[in-house]
Amino acid sequence: MSFAFTPERKRLFKELVKRYPDKRSVTLPALHLAQEQEGYLGRETIEALARMLGSAPSTLMDTVSFYTMFTTRPRGKYLLQVCQTLACSLAGADQVVDHISKRHQIKVGETTPDGKFTLLKVECLGSCGTAPVVQINDDYYERLTLDKVDRILDKLA
């Protein structure tokens, strides 16, 4: 499985390299671009990106492994990230997790057999005023109730 950016992303990547004062600073944007395209950052992807960024795969992996948003393994089509930090916890985040867990028969960290949902507990999403919160892919869903969770997940199913 070799990796290459799609033409559109390749153009974006080149544009970024032009805009930033140094190539290595394009690391995070490039990783986001690649992960959006591939769903995860596999070994070949990291090797290819390292070449593009003039870095070593190990050095790039050093960065990748530090950040919780990057993943080196495939995840479900919908990544359900339930915030578990204080405000969300006080507002019932645990019940949200339990509910999703039961609903889809998956434990935290697991993916449904159909590859649709991956359930994660994450730390503070910065939306404490509208707790509890789940981030599903790019979107935040706030002021959750268990009914609301069902409605959201029904739409995605």
Binding site: A56, S58, D62
Partner: peptide
Amino acid sequence: THELFVENR
């Protein structure tokens, strides 16, 4: 040669 790195957090 950059072989070694710190992994995770």
